[in-house]
Amino acid sequence: MDQIFEILIAGLLIAAGIFGIVGSFGLIKLPETMTRLHAPTKASTLGVGGVLVASMIYFFVFEGKLSWHELLITLFIFLTAPITANFIAKAYMHRNLTPKDMPESNTARGWATYEDEAETQEPLMTKPKRP
C-alpha cells in the first residue's frame, strides 16, 4: 500500500518539476511581454499545485497528520495568479500600446481600460436623495 502512495507522490513531484521548469523556460524563450505573460502564470501555478498536492498526500500517509495549509496555499495561488497577470497586462498596455494598436471591440464602445475618466457614465445605482 505504501508503495502505491510512493509512486503516486513521486509521479506528482516529477510532473510538478517539469511543469515548473517549462514555465520558467517559457519566460526566457518567448519573444515579447504579452506572450511571456502566459507561460509562468499557467505552468508555474500547475507546478506549485502539483508540489502542494504531493506534500499533502505525503504528510497524510507517512506522518499521519492531515494538514490544510497546502490546500490554503493552493487556493490562494489559484485565486491570485489571474489577478496578477491581469494587472501586469494592464500596466504593459498603458505603457507600451495605444488604442490604435488594439483590435476592434465589436461593440458600440471602445476597450474599457482606455476610456477617459472625463466621459462619465450614468451610475447603475442612483444616489440616495437627501431629505
Binding site: L27, T45, V48, R95, N96
Partner: peptide, 24 residues
C-alpha cells in the same frame, strides 16, 4: 528585461518558484 512590467512578471514567477522550493 525589456521593460519594467517584464521585470515585475519575472519577480512574480520567482516568488512562485520559491514557494515550491520551500514546500519541497
Amino acid at each position: 528585461a525589456s521593460g519594467v512590467t517584464d521585470r515585475v512578471l519575472a519577480l512574480d514567477t520567482m516568488v512562485i518558484n520559491i514557494i515550491a522550493l520551500l514546500v519541497l
